[in-house]
């Protein structure tokens, strides 16, 4: 598949990756993406229509555990590495635009331009 590596594409990927990039980074990344795509382009010539993808490296199935409660960490230890905490919770800048409690299936996707207040 022929892909044109545009500034927009790389900016989109950087946003999805949650990595801020400068104009200089962008230039370098566009060139890197072009080279990587050329490098992996060789795969496209290979016919894999009838090949089952190899998704796992583990050879077993049904590796599990009993439903048994084990010791948790104490709160001090849980929060010990936190860049910001109040001794009870991890603290982050106020989450705006998402209402409360976005559980799984309900993540609040941040606005693409980073202006989350706009949501």
């Amino acid at each position: 598949m022929a892909i044109e590596v545009t500034d927009d594409l790389v900016c989109h990927i950087a946003r999805l990756s949650r990595i801020a990039i400068s104009q200089d980074d962008l230039k370098e990344l566009v060139s890197h993406f072009e080279r990587i795509l050329a490098f992996v382009g060789e795969l496209q010539s290979l016919d894999t229509r009838d090949v089952e993808p190899s998704m796992f490296s583990v050879e077993s199935t049904n590796v599990d555990r009993e439903d048994i409660v084990c010791a948790s960490l104490g709160r001090t230890e849980s929060l010990a590495n936190a860049p910001e905490s109040n001794g009870t919770f991890f603290v982050v800048p106020r989450i705006v635009g998402g209402g409360s409690e976005a559980g799984p299936g309900a993540p609040v996707q941040m606005e693409e331009d980073g202006a989350e207040g706009a949501a």
Binding site: L16, S17, A20, H32, F33, I95, V96, E111
Partner: peptide, 26 residues
């Protein structure tokens, strides 16, 4: 805000090669 927290923390914390691979992977 949160988005900036993520994007700048990661931009400052990761080295260039790590960032390249994360973005290629994404």
């Amino acid at each position: 805000g949160l988005v900036e927290l993520y994007a700048r923390s990661r931009a400052e914390g990761f080295g260039a090669e790590v960032k390249r691979r994360i973005m290629v992977g994404t």
